[in-house]
Structure formats: structure tokens, C-alpha cells
Design a protein around this nucleic acid. Structure first.
Length: 583
RNA sequence: GCUGGAGUAGCUCAGCAGGUAGAGCAAUGCUCUCGUAAAGCAUAGGUCAUAAGUUCAAGUCUUAUCUCCAGCACCA
């Protein structure tokens, strides 16, 4: 999909189209008031206050018609520059524009654009005439909080897109349709990867056998990587006492987003929303010398978060998730090296999964926000500077995002750009000087004195849930061989004559650890082949007279139409090698 | 959580002047099946999300709740 915001011509076109939308809305709803109408990656939107009126699909069509009409009139678009005082006077009846104008400094020259009977405050630039706006489409509408703050009134937002010609517009609309086909919720249902049930609860997916196989492969994969890097894996309970989270500080910051406390005898429990406190206690279970550090505690840990009902989505955003979590306990001198190891692991994993389009975000605290962030300037400056230092030293490009840090420290997030849709955060690596203090953790240094370790929180996959959702969407469900629930699907041409040999092939492949299926139903060959393809099996074997006689196999790969012949042993070896190579 | 839309068979959907539910696929049974994307016939399958209300009569109208979808807000 084209990024409209980054294309100068399209950006101008879409910005002007937002004005066209506003003009049309003003014609149809004279009382409409307008907030802002920016260009975004996928086109443009305009936030509008329509009073008590709410937009419907039919209204959208009407507005679009009116836009076409105005466009045909072909009025020119004029720029005008006025002073702040003039602007305040001219827009005095429009509280939204007044709000915008008041944000300008005294003496600023403010620009306005006029087309026919409509004038809007705007920086520009715009196209010469509304005539140029021909190939546009209003896509959707929804509510949006004024100034993006949920305490404010909700305005109505209309999204649209404008292209230079009909082909580009149609191509975009087609892409929108196709995007639905990659939705992991649809794929998850079609391929029996996960299910949900009201009796289990919202945001609580059940992983079906196919999904469980995929997840198990991911677990094995990352376990091996972590084990090789000296991680020690643990299992800890999915509950903790309220006091545990009071000690860590999470209670104060997140209790609204946790499942409510439950009282058992005299103890107060919560379902755990994260694993740091448990891992702190694992560390504290033994006395540590500086020689033991770094200590790396890893866990595939199930957590529960009371996510807002409107946020829950498939496997991507859930209320019960499994983190690929670890906490690294290091001396201050070890921060740099250990942090780099984590970044190297992330890059290594992304390479294995073929992820190329990603960016690093250094998430810092908002210094003004004393509510959200633990208040200790010295600690924060030290942590943030240390992270910058490590990243600069490492040489990976990154951008800084103020207000995105965790309450206990800054973090490095990796944002991955999927084939369709907005960026998702998968990996995270956080520096924490706070929790070790809260839990009074220490190690004994060279001089026999107690020192406080530093903790690095990190998750490479993020959660297995989100990562799986991401993988399904990237691959459209056609997973690589090593992850595919079924790796080889065997179809006898005719059960009566070829089933015995098919069973022989099945046993051979299964005995060497290949996930293989034998389709011995009484169905026509074409029918079974179709089903095998629809199920996105990487390899489909067709076994008939030719194969029985030659002791060969014929296979076709997913997305290929032609078949290949190969000896059975050779084929088995090829599959084993490909699985090992994570193809 | 907020704004708006939607929930009919396992799946995809039709039925919407209110008169008591229908198709294709899937399932089951039988028949047919020797080469690469859907063979034929039959059978079974539904308190139309849940609960209340209006009505002689509710899948269809009203209200509430739950879930799903699109955005917004949120994401340790």
C-alpha cells in the first residue's frame, strides 16, 4: 500500500480532499463545526462536530455525491494570509477554530484557503482547483475524541482517500478487500488454529491442536536460543498476592487494568499481569556474588490483563497471554554488553523469520508526568543516558518517543511493519533501576559489600499470541515448513490400489519426526488435492501406480502447480533438512 | 471504556409489508471413484445471541444484557 503522507503530490491531493469533504458536509449540515482534517498514511480524515446528528452509511453516500458535485463546479482554491487578530475575528463563531488560532503565537501570519463558499484555516499546501479532486472515496466513519483525550467530547471522524486516477483508487480498494483475507482471525478460524467461546470469556482464546503445534515450535525455537545464551528457565504461578504488586509498585500504577482481587482465607490474590515480581523473588532466593552475574531468568509465562473491552482483538490483544519473558540481573558495568546481547538476539530472530521492515523506538518518560513515572530524576537520567549510549555504541538507528516508557524505566521497543496495517510492537527491552531496590535485591561485590543489581526486562517475541497473529497475517496462513501444523499431506490416487504404499510412506515419514497426514477418505483425487491446498499444507504427496512401482513419491509444494518426483528416502531427508534449516 | 454497525444450522449467507425458517459447503449413510483446485443421491442438523416487553401472532418492532466488527482512547 502506498504511504500517502510521504508522497508529496498525493499528500496535497488528500489534504485538499479533506477540505472538499468539509465543504460538502457544511452544505448538507449547515451547523457542522470542524476540528482538524489531516493527511494520514492511508488517505485523510476530518473530525467534525455535528451536534446530535450521527452519520450513517447513507449519509456517507450523500456526502460523497455532494463532493463530486462541488468538484465538477471546478472552483479555484485561493490562499490568503491574515494576522492572528483577523483570524480570531473571522472565525469568532467557531469555537474549534478559535481554539486552534489561540495556539498560534502573537504576530504569526495565519493562512486560510477558500474554495467557493467554503473557507478553512490551513497551513496548506493545496491543489490549484477542486477540479483536480476526482478519484476519491469515503472509506469509513467513527467517533474520535476531541484532541485525542477520552475526557473530551467525541467528534465524528470521516475517513477518505483520494488518488490521481481511477486505476490507483481501484487498486487501493482492492487491497482493502484483500487485507480482510489476511486477517489472522479469519485464518485462525479457517485453519482451526484458535477458537473463542463466551463461556470462557472475552479475550481468552483457546489454542486448538493446530495452533498449539505452531506455538510449541515457537517455544522450542526461542528456548534453544535463550538456553544457548545462558538463560535459566523457570515456572512460577499465575497468581500473586496484592502485597507482591504493592511491593513492586504495579498495584498503584495498574490495578485498574488487572483482574479484580480475590480473597482466599486471609490472603488477597490477583491474577498476575506480568512476571517481574516473581522473577525478583527467584533472584532473591539465593545469595549472589558479583561472579554469578549476569543471571538470566526466563519463563514462558501466562499473564492476565483486564484490557479495555474495545481493545480486545483475536490473538493480537487478549486478556490472557503468554509472554516470552526474561529478566536479566546485571552489575551496572554489565548493562551495555548485556543489552547488546539482547538486541543481537532480536536481530537474529528477525533474520530467521525474515522480518526486514522494523524500527527501534527508544521510549522515554515524560518528565512532566509525575503520576505515571516513578519520581527520581537522577535514576531516570542515568537509565536513559545509559540506553542512548548503548544504542549509539551499537550503531542501530532509533528514534526517541517521550511518554512511552514503563513506570520503572526507559525501554527499547521494536516496531515491526506488517504487510498490511499499522506497525505493531513485538520485541521490547527495558532498563530498570527501580524494582531491584523495591525488592531489596543485592549481590556481593569484590569488596564483600552489598550492591544493588540492575534489571533488564526483555521479551523477544513479545507474546506468543501476538507473534502468532503477526505470523499468520504475514504468511496469509501459509506457514513455513518447520512451523506448519501438517508438513506433508499424503493422497493415494486410488485407495483400492495405492493405500498400502501410501501407508508405507506415511510410516516412514512419521518415524523420522515429520508431521504427516494420510488422506484415506473415499474421495476423488481432485477433491483431496483441493482440500490440501486450501489447508495450506506445504507439501502434498500424490501416490499412484507410477510411485508404487518406482518406490518414489510425487509432490507438489504449496503455491506451485507442477509436481516433482523423488525417491522416498531422498524426500524424507530433504524434508528433515529443510525443517532443520527452518525453511 | 466511548461512538457507530452487526449477531439466523459446524462454516458462508438468504429470509426484514410482523403470520411461526431456507440454500450451498461441511457432517452422516449409500452409490460412483487409477493422476493434481469441489462426483451423485439421501438423511440429519436451528428455543433465529440471551432476557424481558408490545401484539391474536415476533428472526422481523421496543428495551436491557452479552459477544463480534470498524474507529477512538488505552497497552506494565
Amino acid at each position: 500500500m502506498k504511504n500517502i503522507k510521504e508522497d508529496e503530490r498525493l499528500s496535497k491531493l488528500n489534504h485538499s480532499c479533506a477540505h472538499l469533504l468539509a465543504q460538502a458536509v457544511k452544505h448538507l449540515y449547515p451547523n457542522a463545526l470542524f476540528w482538524v482534517g489531516p493527511v494520514i498514511e492511508e488517505g485523510f480524515y476530518y473530525d467534525i462536530d455535528l451536534g446530535d446528528i450521527t452519520i450513517t452509511d447513507e449519509d456517507l453516500e450523500k456526502i460523497e455525491k455532494e463532493m463530486k458535485k462541488i468538484s465538477k463546479d471546478g472552483k479555484r482554491i485561493y490562499r490568503e494570509e491574515i494576522s492572528k487578530e483577523e483570524a480570531l475575528e473571522r472565525f469568532k463563531n467557531d469555537p474549534y477554530k478559535i481554539d486552534l488560532i489561540n495556539n498560534f503565537e502573537e504576530g504569526t501570519i495565519i493562512s486560510c484557503y477558500t474554495q467557493g463558499d467554503f473557507t478553512d484555516l490551513c497551513r496548506g499546501p493545496h491543489v490549484e482547483s477542486v477540479k483536480e479532486l476526482k478519484y476519491f472515496k469515503l472509506i469509513k466513519f467513527s467517533g474520535a475524541y476531541w484532541k485525542g483525550d477520552s475526557k473530551n467530547k467525541m467528534l465524528q471522524r470521516i475517513y477518505g482517500v483520494c488518488y490521481e486516477n481511477e486505476e490507483d483508487l481501484n487498486e487501493y480498494l482492492k487491497e482493502l478487500e484483500e487485507a480482510k483475507e489476511r486477517d489472522h482471525r479469519k485464518i485462525g478460524k479457517d485453519l482451526s488454529i484458535f477458537m473463542q467461546h463466551d463461556l470462557v470469556g472475552k479475550g481468552m482464546p483457546l489454542w486448538l491442536p493446530n495452533g498449539a503445534l505452531i506455538r510449541k515450535q515457537l517455544e522450542n525455537y526461542i528456548y534453544e536460543k535463550e538456553h544457548a545464551l545462558g538463560y535459566q528457565h523457570v515456572y512460577t504461578p499465575c497468581v500473586g498476592t496484592v502485597d507482591l504488586y504493592k511491593t513492586s509498585g504495579h498495584w498503584d500504577h495498574y490495578k485498574e487494568n488487572m483482574f479484580p482481587m480475590m480473597k482466599v482465607d486471609e490472603e488477597e490474590f490477583v491474577l498476575r499481569p506480568m512476571n517481574c515480581p516473581h522473577h525478583m523473588l527467584v533472584y532473591a532466593n539465593e545469595l549472589h556474588s558479583y561472579r554469578d552475574l549476569p543471571i538470566r531468568i526466563g519463563e514462558f509465562a501466562t499473564d492476565f490483563r483486564y484490557e479495555a473491552s474495545g481493545a480486545v482483538k483475536g490473538l493480537e490483544r487478549v486478556r490472557c497471554m503468554c509472554q516470552n519473558d526474561a529478566h536479566l540481573f546485571v552489575t551496572p558495568e554489565q548493562i551495555g554488553e548485556e543489552f547488546k546481547k539482547v538486541v543481537r538476539l532480536i536481530l537474529d530472530v528477525y533474520k530467521d523469520f525474515g522480518l526486514k521492515d522494523y524500527s527501534f523506538r527508544l521510549s522515554l518518560r515524560d518528565k512532566e508526568d509525575k503520576e505515571k513515572y516513578f519520581d527520581d530524576d537522577e535514576m531516570w537520567n542515568m537509565a536513559e543516558n545509559k540506553l542512548r549510549e548503548v544504542l549509539d555504541d551499537f550503531g542501530v538507528p532509533y528514534y526517541e518517543a517521550v511518554g512511552e516508557a514503563a513506570f520503572y524505566g526507559p525501554k527499547l521497543d521494536v516496531e515491526v511493519k506488517p504487510a498490511v496495517g499499522p506497525e505493531v510492537t513485538l520485541s521490547t527491552c527495558q532498563l530498570d533501576f527501580l524494582l531491584p531496590r523495591r525488592f531489596e535485591l543485592f549481590y556481593i561485590d569484590q569488596n564483600g559489600e552489598k550492591q544493588i543489581p540492575v534489571v533488564i526486562h526483555r521479551a523477544i517475541f513479545g507474546t506468543f499470541d501476538r507473534f502468532t497473529a503477526f505470523l499468520l497475517e504475514e504468511t496469509k496462513g501459509a506457514l513455513p515448513l518447520w512451523l506448519s501444523p501438517t508438513q506433508v499431506d499424503i493422497i493415494p490416487v486410488n485407495n483400492e490400489y495405492h493405500l498400502d504404499y501410501s501407508k508405507e510412506v506415511f510410516n516412514k515419514l512419521e518415524s523420522v519426526g515429520i508431521r504427516v497426514k494420510l488422506d484415506d477418505r473415499n474421495e476423488k483425487l481432485g477433491y483431496k488435492v483441493r482440500e490440501s491446498i486450501v489447508n495450506k499444507n506445504p507439501y502434498t504427496l500424490i501416490l499412484g501406480q507410477k510411485e508404487v512401482e518406482s518406490k518414489n513419491v510425487s509432490y507438489r509444494m504449496y503455491s506451485e502447480e507442477d509436481t516433482h518426483q523423488m525417491g522416498l528416502d531422498e524426500f524424507a531427508q530433504k524434508i528433515i533438512d529443510d525443517i532443520k534449516a527452518r525453511k
